[in-house]
Nucleic acid binder design. Structure first.
Lengths: 152, 152
DNA sequence: TATTGTTATACTCTATAACTATA
DNA sequence: TATAGTTATAGAGTATAACAATA
């Protein structure tokens, strides 16, 4: 992502900013997870969808989108692709909505994805030492759950 | 970003994952910063470039790109736009590179951007309480600085 | 040979608007 | 009137390849 190291002595006034560090750290972890999931032919978003459907069998694609922060319109090609690959099944429950569930093949891939994601988490958590774990999770959750914060 | 709250009782097996929380938290902070910087006509990436040039007068656009993780090719329209708005100046030092610096107008806007970013940081740090500050920064920096981590 | 700046281009992610069919 | 799914489309952000000028 970065072509070469910056010239030494270069000042980075962003290096101490929470928002900037969150963005950079998230990019590093996502890029690494993406390359690890390539081996089983899934992108991170597809793996998270499989995990979510497994945890909530019978949910709709709108449910999934709401939890992951993905718009209904953008869920369509994601669900279609997982369906074409026979990893998920849709069954009509309503004239307008489908109940989603994993196929046996989807369950196999979900297990593999979960193992890769567990190892991925553990590797990064290990690098953080005592700072990781519930303290860090709680701090990030506090930010991630913010819907609105009063203006400056 | 999220249309409505997810159905209560919905399980989110991602909610405890560090990588997922980093991504969501970063999105929330970036979206908020973006809306706050709109008032002075800057995007977050443009504000960070102004801060970086101010801290390193005479640097090149390739230097800026290396520090921020932006490819040379993608720096071109960013620098061009800041130049057209007379916020930065280029002076040839080399047949092939330009030394960048802020114009007086650019310095005015940089000060405004920095004030907005300071308030933004403070507001989010305040929500995190004792978890924020150097401990959290160090943890995130440890992740953000990873270039390569041994494969699983 | 390597680097700076540049153009052109493509791919992903995200966003809105509008439509249908259902409830 | 509101919701689920869909289509089309537009805008960011990011990626590569290739080139000219220069070191």
């Amino acid at each position: 992502m970065i072509e070469t190291a910056p010239a030494s002595g270069f000042k980075d006034p962003l290096a101490s900013r929470l928002g900037y560090l969150l963005r950079r750290a998230s990019t590093v972890m996502m890029a690494k997870l993406g390359s690890e999931l390539e081996g089983i032919g899934l992108r991170p978003v597809e793996a998270t969808i499989l995990l979510l459907i497994a945890a909530n069998p019978g949910c709709t694609q709108s449910d999934v989108g709401r939890v992951l922060g993905i718009k209904r319109a953008n869920m369509v090609p994601l669900i279609a692709s997982l369906g074409v690959r026979a990893l998920i099944e849709k069954s009509r429950v309503d004239g307008r909505s489908h109940a989603l569930s994993l196929t046996p093949e989807g369950e196999v891939l979900r297990k593999q994805a979960e193992a890769i994601m567990d190892a991925h988490e553990q590797r990064f958590s290990g690098l953080l030492g005592p700072l990781s774990g519930e303290h860090l999770n709680a701090a990030l959750r506090a930010i991630a759950l913010i819907r609105d914060i009063e203006p400056a």
